[in-house]
Write a protein that binds this DNA or RNA. Structure first.
Lengths: 243, 243
DNA sequence: TATTTTTAATATGTATTACATAACAGCTAA
DNA sequence: TTAGCTGTTATGTAATACATATTAAAAATA
């Protein structure tokens, strides 16, 4: 075929990137036709006028972010991507800057406070019981590790109550990331303004608004801790002054 | 070299995926040595005992999620990834299921309510003035499009006040995605329980707690709208019953 | 000497070919 | 019918060759 590319693939740096976009538009059309099957790599290469290597790289990238899967002999099929599926390697790369880490820490706090409405909307008696069961275990916990695990379990359950799968995915990633930042000294429970039991009480008899206030108080140590460890300083190490 | 692979790359489906992981661990080590430069593709292929094609595909995937960049002749350098950088193609693919879309819509509501503390922490007089300026423009807006644009501008400014770059990135993506879902009939302002002006008042004289309540009321139409358009139904089209 | 131009070297980017491998379909034999 | 064999197929991997952009060194010019 011998198609010579005179670097006229506009805008995008490389042919692969351009091909990735081409594939995405192709996908958008296929989806509207309710067709979840892609042509073979060779055919696709022919259609787009590039080599199979380029198509493969582009497909691999799309596979990396979870919009499609491929199987031997079967071919390429479109899948419904999990929104935060591609975040795992980013977080695990250890390349996130301190500012980004702080961003994530803050996001977690925002979400835990902001999800009140959705917890209340879906809550059931069984949920209350499950939470109280965790609390009971917490009271009889011996080691610090046990307490930590149960603390995580309690909050994870609250997340799951929102029935928001993406939120749970996100939380799962953050939980692993911030395990180290948690202020789990032996007396961390003493410092808490409001306990898990208190939260459940509000959950039973309160409103989303009162639950937000309660959760804000419960997370007080996290707010303070964030200030200490992840202070939002500029590159010179000095805190930014507000005008 | 002729290394024959007897499919003993465990766990991972393909060599590329395994190589991607290998690269990530390699990166993690390099980062701790404060070395942001990767070996050449050929060297890396030699080191990992795979062909250059595989290394290139793995690198391409990492490039797709934003943990590294490559330039001709220069080579591969590590970068600090933007957390939500890889979300753009996922959202734009149009492959997200209705449940995922609803998840995102809910997340946005959670964040707008949950970010109160961070808005208050960083707020300045200039911010208040900027917001009031937007409100003034809103009052004199003629067309619906103008109103919508200013509405978005107002909320975007609130996001920016948190000084959380990742949050702003996330919001930017969602704003484009949900432009269609916004309930912007001509009288949408009339239905609002609390106006932008009201929010600014609370921002001036209130607390994070009172701001959350105000924002919750302000977003009331969004909450109701979500129920209508993106009702969380199962695949059979019937709403799930809670025990 | 200082500055511009040319040239050469280099690592990534793309194309081509060849073959390995897993999965599937169809066939055969028990 | 069912178990096992066999060939086909599309993806997965390897190897090679060359194009291209970028950098740096070398040469030419002022």
């Amino acid at each position: 075929m011998k198609t010579i590319h005179t670097t006229d693939y506009r805008k995008d740096r490389s042919l692969v990137e351009q091909t990735q976009k081409d594939l995405l538009t192709y996908i958008a059309n296929q989806k509207s036709n309710d067709n979840s099957h892609m042509p073979k790599e060779n055919e696709m290469a022919e259609i787009l006028g590039v080599s199979r290597v380029v198509v493969r790289e582009a497909l691999s990238r799309l596979r990396a972010i979870g919009v499609l899967e491929t199987k031997r002999k079967k071919g390429t099929v479109l899948v419904s991507p999990r929104i935060f599926g591609s975040l795992k390697p980013i977080i695990e790369s250890g390349l996130l800057e301190r500012d980004s880490l702080r961003d994530l820490y803050e996001l977690r706090l925002m979400l835990e406070i902001g999800m009140a409405d959705f917890i209340f909307r879906q809550k059931t008696e069984k949920d209350i019981e499950a939470l109280q069961e965790i609390i009971e275990k917490e009271e009889t916990a011996k080691t610090t590790e046990e307490s930590i695990a149960l603390d995580i379990q309690f909050h994870s359950y609250l997340y799951s109550m929102t029935k928001n799968a993406s939120l749970s995915d996100f939380h799962f990633l953050l939980e692993k990331l911030f395990a180290m930042y948690a202020p789990r000294t032996k007396d961390y429970k003493v410092k808490q303004v409001i306990s898990h039991a208190g939260l459940v009480e509000v959950l039973r008899f309160g409103s989303p608004d009162s639950f937000r206030i309660a959760m804000r108080l419960h997370l007080n140590t996290q707010f303070e801790n964030m200030e200490k460890i992840l202070d939002r300083t500029d590159t010179n190490g000095k805190a930014k002054a507000n005008t």
